[in-house]
Amino acid sequence: MNLPRRELLRYGLLSAAGAGLAPLIGCGKKTSAPAPKQAPTREISGQWSLRSVAAEHRLLTGFAVDPKLLQDPHYVAVVREQASLIVPENAMKWGALRPALGQYSFEQADALLTFAEQNRIRLRGHTLCWHRALPSWVEAIDSAQEARRQLTEHIQTVTGRYAGRMHSWDVVNEAVEVKDNRPDGLRNSFWLRMVGPDYIEVAFQAARAADPAALLSYNDYGIESETYDAEQKRSAVLLLLRRLKARRVPLDAVGIQCHISARPMYSYGPGLQRFMERVREMGLQIFLSEMDVNDREVDRTPGRQDVEVAQTYSRFLAMALEERAVTAVLFWGVDDGQSWLRYENGRDDQTRPLLFDQNLRPKEAFYAARAAMETRSTPSKTGL
C-alpha cells in the first residue's frame, strides 16, 4: 500500500518521533465483530495493554500527559505501556508557551516530544487557537492587524518547530457557542472580535503551511448528549465544518471531547451517531479527544462508584466505536489524582473519573474501555 505520510499517520502505520446511570439510547445497527480474546482478568501489560488492543482495531489510544510528571517512574511506566498517542494537557497552550510578548518557552513541550519519540508514541498538539489560557499581553492587544499577525506568527512558529514530528494538532478549539446568538454559531471570543470570523481559516492555513504532514483538527465539547443544547451545538459545528470544507480550508479531523457524565439525566446515542456520520461523509477522521466521566452525582458507596463510571465508559464507547471514522481515543489524564474534575466547581477529592486511581492502579473503567475496543469491528484499511 503506497500512501503519503499523512495517510500513514491516519491509519497508524507510521511511527512518529449492569445498568448504568447514563443510558445510551438508539445505538443503531450492530455490526458483527469477532469474539474478543479471553484476557486474563487483571492482566494489563503486553498484548493486553490498551495500546495493543486498540492497535488490533486500527485505533490509537492514550492520555493527556503532564510533562512535569515524567519524573515519576510509575507514571512513566503506565504511559509507556498503555499509550500509542499522547497529548499535552496544558504545555502547548498559549499561556505555557508565550510568557511575554516576543518570548517563547518550549522546555515542557520539547520534553514531551522527546519522551514520545524515545518510546515510539505519537504526539498530538493542543491547542494553537483557543479563547482561554491566553496570557495577559495577548488580551491587551487592541489592533485587528496586530492580533492577526500574532495569531499567524504563533502558529507558524510553534508548528514549524515540530514540523514532521507530530501526529496531529488541535488547531482551533471550542470556536462554537450557540448561546452567543450569532447567526454563524461562533463564540464571541477575543479572536473573533479582534480578527473576525475568518480567524479560524487563518489558523488552519498557517498550520498547514508550517507543517504539511500533521493532521489538522477542529476540537469541541458539549456535542455528545441527547439534549436540546447538544443538538443545537452539533448543528452549529456541522455548519462551521461545511463552511471550512467549501472554502477548501485544510481540515483533516474533528475532535469530540467526550467529557461525559454518569448522571441519570444524560443519555448518549442517535444524535451523536448522526453527527459522526455527517463528519465521516465530509471525509474527516474523528478523535474522541478528551474523554473522562463526571461522577459527581453517582452513588459513592465504596465499590459502586467505580462500577457506575465503568458502565458509562462501556456504553458510550460501545456506541461511539461503531463509527468507523473514529481513529483515536484519548483520556483526559492518566489517573484520578491529576484530573481537572478534582478542581472544577470546587475541590472534589473523591472523584474517580479516569482509568487509573491516584496510585496508578487500573480500575473497572480500564477494563470496560479495553473491552469496548476489543469488541469493535475493525474498519477497512482502504478508507474511512
Rank of each mutant, 00 (worst) to 15 (best):
N90V: 01
E281R: 05
L251S: 05
G28W: 03
N345F: 06
R342E: 08
G160R: 10
Y228A: 12
D336W: 00
A262Y: 03
A253H: 07
V195P: 02
W191F: 03
E231D: 12
D180I: 10
Q118D: 07
D306N: 14
V195E: 04
L241V: 09
D252V: 13
Q156T: 15
P250Q: 00
M282W: 06
Q305L: 13
W130Y: 09
D72N: 15
A310I: 00
S52Y: 01
A100E: 14
R234Q: 05
I200D: 08
R149I: 05
Q82A: 04
A147Q: 08
T31M: 06
G26I: 00
T312E: 12
P4C: 01
L251K: 04
P135H: 14
A209S: 06
V76P: 07
R120Y: 08
E89T: 05
R347T: 15
P73Y: 11
A96V: 08
G271C: 03
Q350P: 00
P73D: 14
R247T: 12
V65C: 03
L216D: 04
I286E: 02
W48I: 11
V53C: 11
D220H: 01
S189R: 08
G20W: 00
L330T: 12
L244N: 08
A19E: 15
A372Q: 03
R280A: 11
V202Y: 03
T157F: 01
E231S: 10
V309G: 10
A133G: 10
A253N: 06
L192Q: 12
I200T: 07
F316A: 06
M282Y: 01
S49Q: 02
G62F: 06
A203K: 01
Y199N: 01
V79G: 06
A371M: 08
M282G: 09
D180N: 13
Y367H: 12
S168N: 05
S217T: 15
A147K: 05
R352S: 13
K93M: 00
G303T: 02
A318M: 05
L330M: 14
